[in-house]
Amino acid sequence: MSVGRPLWLRAVLRLERAIGEPIEAATRSDAYFDVVAHATRAHARTIGAAEEISRRCLHLLNLPAGTDVRRVREQLARMERRMAALSDEIADLEHGRDAAAG
């Protein structure tokens, strides 16, 4: 609703739409998502290569790299999930036993 809005604001809003509409059309196009996909893959490759170099350097000094820490965290996460599943199983069993007794 433009009633009550000052002239400068109305001008800015119209300008924003004039610029915004073609940009939005572009960012919803196939070409845009192709570019995003290529850029994302290139970024991942660059990060991977940098991590590989730093990992080798750190391993030469017998130090753990970020990837090692990540792997340990993943293993911990698996253990944590397994423990949670076991505690759920125990809780369910106890619940079933209590229900049978009560």
Binding site: E16, G20, I23, T27
Partner: peptide, 17 residues
């Protein structure tokens, strides 16, 4: 953000007002 990347301009102008 890329659904409407220029909306921020309108929002900031409305904020200023």
């Amino acid at each position: 953000y890329m659904l409407a990347p220029t909306t921020e301009i309108a929002q900031k102008a409305t904020l200023l007002e």
